[in-house]
Design a protein around this nucleic acid. Structure first.
Lengths: 213, 213
DNA sequence: GTCTATATAGGGATAGAC
DNA sequence: GTCTATCCCTATATAGAC
């Protein structure tokens, strides 16, 4: 190996990710990518078998980062602040690989492999949410039945998955501003709020002020 | 005009809708549609300028049906049962035109017109939800602050919009069954539940049993 | 209204020279 | 590793005969 192995390969991944995120994966062709990189299409195909191959490699990085973000916070019992932090990590990861979420259904229906791997992530997310909630119940911070927690976890996972899409199609009050991740985190926290003990509920309403305009 | 004007035109719309819903709009070409109808592509282009033209006409029908579904229930104060019924109408409409939701972001980014019209629907939905909630607050059935209601309405609209997509990508426990609309309605009702008076909350938990397996 | 034929364009992908 | 050249295929769309 030389000093800079796979320099072009790396550039392809970086630029592809940027273009997918900006224009949507279906709207970006291998030719567009090659153009942007000022390399030939042939060269691109030397490094990757096809477009799906690029997507898969990007997915792998996404997957690793998401796994990292979902790691339970140390060994102590979880607190509200931990959830806040963890949501931040998760939302940042989603933002970085937002093209995956924009056309999620088509993407996963196209590839059995990706579908299974994404399902794994969702499953883990759901379990993680339930676990954290159970923890909060035991410390008395949260009050909810098992059934309520299950429904809550479902809704949190759904909101996390599709919030960015929803933000994109909402009536735009202002002129074309990028969605702030904080807003998404706020919405998720508001799913949790009604089950919180009064003290923590107040605390959350306080934090809310920072996130609504 | 003869006895059956626009017979083919109508068939095109019907079959297009079915194919879009089944395979996803981006994966269905004008040729596929013509094939399925056993007419020539040229004939199809006699009736519609292009594929987007077909999509727009389908959207129009969707829009009309959705407007109908969102009509406030008469003039009396809304009750929980009304919400349940209204959700049914809305979810059925979404189900009928589910292809719109599957690739919503791309679809709306492709057409300014559709984006504005969908935004109008979302806006109306949000206002309608807020209004109903306020009504429930006044009759004492629901207990929530203005801020909580706003966040709730946002989350209900989001869940309604993307529930079907989420259901499609979730880890499938059973072998390929069609998602039941009741499940989606249940999830939305569970967003409302924590704000309900105890009596109604119990009532809801009762209904839940019907919808979870 | 419907068909056949065709034009055009673009994307995916490969072979072979350098 | 990279480029040029090229092939195949499919999708959109139109013209003109019937």
């Amino acid at each position: 190996m030389t000093a800079r192995p796979n320099k072009t390969r790396e550039r392809i991944l970086t630029v592809s990710l940027a273009m997918f995120n900006e224009q949507g994966e279906p709207n970006v062709t291998t030719n567009h990518i090659a153009d942007e990189l000022e390399i030939s299409p042939g060269n691109l195909y030397y490094h990757f078998r096809n477009k799906d191959d690029i997507v898969e490699h990007l997915f792998e990085r996404y997957e690793a980062q998401m796994d990292q973000a979902m790691l339970a916070p140390e060994d102590r019992a979880p607190e509200l602040e931990d959830i806040w932090l963890q949501l931040h990590l998760v939302f940042e990861c989603i933002w970085e690989y937002r093209f995956l979420y924009r056309d999620l259904v088509d993407l996963l229906l196209r590839s059995r492999k990706l579908k299974m791997r994404f399902a794994r992530i969702l499953k883990r997310a759901h379990e993680s949410i339930v676990e954290v909630c159970q923890g909060l119940v035991e410390t008395g911070v949260l009050k909810a039945s098992r059934v309520e927690i299950e429904a809550l976890a479902y809704n949190i996972a759904m909101a996390t998955t599709f919030w960015l899409n929803f933000e994109q199609i909402r009536p735009q009050l202002t002129t074309r501003t990028e969605p702030e991740l904080g807003r998404g985190i706020y919405q998720v926290m508001m799913l949790l709020a009604p089950f919180l003990r009064d003290g923590e509920r107040q605390h959350l309403n306080h934090l809310a002020e920072d996130y609504l305009r």
